[in-house]
Design a binder for these strands. Sequence first.
RNA 1: CGGGGUGUGGCUCAGCCCGGUUAGAGCGCCUGCCUUGGGCGCAGGAGGCCGGAAGUUCGAAUCUUCUCACCCCGACCA
Length: 564
Amino acid sequence: MKISKAFIPTLKEVPADANIPSHQLMMRAGMMRQLTAGVYSYLPLGLRVITNAMNIVREEMNAIGGQELLLPALNPESLWIQSGRRNIPNFILSIKERDLVLAPTHEEVIGYIASMHIQSYKDLPQTWYQIQTKFRNEPRPRSGVLRGRQFIMKDAYSLDRSWEDLDKSYDAHAEAYKKIFTRCGIKYFIVGASSGAMGGTGSQEFMIESEFGEDTTALCPKCGYAANLEVATSNLPKAKRVEKSEPTKEIHTPNVKTIDQLVDFLKTDQSRFAKSLVYRHNGKPLLILMMGNDQLNESKLTAALGGGDIAPMGAEELLSLTGADGGSIGPVNLRGFRIIADKRLEGMNGLISGANKNDYHIANIDLARDAKVEEYYDLRSIEVGEPCPKCSGALKISNAIELGHIFKLGTKYSDTLNITYLDESGKAQPVIMGSYGIGMERIVACYIEQNHDKDGIIWNKALAPYQIHLIAVNMNSKDVAEVSEKMYGELTKAGIDVLLDDRTNITPGFKFKDADLLGMPFQVIVGDKGLKNGQIEIKRRKTGERIMVKLEDASAEIIKLLAE
RNA sequence: CGGGGUGUGGCUCAGCCCGGUUAGAGCGCCUGCCUUGGGCGCAGGAGGCCGGAAGUUCGAAUCUUCUCACCCCGACCA
């Protein structure tokens, strides 16, 4: 492609709305333009990169037996009502004119097809995938292409007859994902994750570390343990029981509300306190006990409760229900509440908690004796530096961007959408499903986050929109114009994607700046300076290293460099 | 959905508090000259309902109210 004829609108200045490097550079390099919040047009250069990523994804998906199909973005609303996912908050965008919705993912449609056509165990296993545009009702799109209302996703679905076979499909996808991200040149890590609204029995996320990430992950530098904070655990020791369970007693604690104030007031370690958090779960009052200042992890809570509506109870409501304010609630003699507690409190005695009476607390609580705790769950958010659950090394916490997510769905959709097959004995069995996603734009954005410098993008060969950026330093020089035109022809003929800067009346400096911004792996510079000695220059974008080669060896040398 | 911010030429912004000729700058664009190894130089030029609506006023980019859009923080995030 010749730049003089190409549509590559580069920008010298950073657009005001772009806040993170990948967003800024994708705009400045003319890869895309925003249409409305969370919706982008991909211009030719941007599309070339996405297409490269798609082809890598296709090759690796095909390699594990995936079969590509293409499902409609427009879905009947009824299908989503049937699966129970129509009313997940901030999930589905709908159209006004008909009872159709824009699909945010495709388990439902896959299920619809599978329920019709998967009939026998002989039809299994299957892996189906597509690369297609998804729509989500994001409350707040942000960070350029990283969180949009419309985005391209590779989504794959495995159909198996047994949980063992699901494990095989799942592992195959994990391996394919590793190959995909490695080929793309992305430094990633894998974490254990929550399956969230997707449902299912297990999941992992493929992440890159980034200060701009929306996810928080815990990592053990020592043994490699890695988990999303939504599910991360640590090996914090439990507090010890006191030797003897004394009778409970009320203590006067005027104007003492928070755990910190209590620790101060009673001169007692925070691990002796059971903090009360009051929620409603599906409308019903719920008391959650946490040790001391441990933070409740709402993802863990949701998982423990098996989903449903979960919301903190309002202050007035709480007062009318218990007769006390938030700082004075406790598990002893609390009526009308289901009580659950964090595992760290299991078996504890000698505890202090609210008396359900303002300005009073109760001491010497033995949870087993004095409270009706229905169940103990792991509910706390881990903190930086806590011991790793596997090796007890100090855990590190960092932000991350999710590139891909793989789920063991199990029978969740088979149950609601009635996806069954007949086994050898003629008995109907639910199909065991998995689902596997990759955000295609995120591949591009994450790559740029990891591979740029002050001058622009630094593409590798796998994703680069063109392999060679051929710069005709001065088109007014007959020699330069002729030689660059000739090289362009030769390289193109050799099957290399070349971008030729053949613009006239543009200063060399402008061309060099553009070339660094666009970031092709190699720049081939044809100027009078080199031609005087029968040479052209090759600059490696990543290192800035420049080599001079004889004109007649140039094409061969370039082909050699690209074959590295 | 709560809090904050911003809407002025294609892009980045000034002007707005304190209302008053014909609304500015830099970049980009067009024409000509010049220059040709790091976003040159000179000269000329085109391009604006100052996001939209309603008000206040003799007069509104500027003040008031409403509204829309976008961005940021939070909530949310399969």
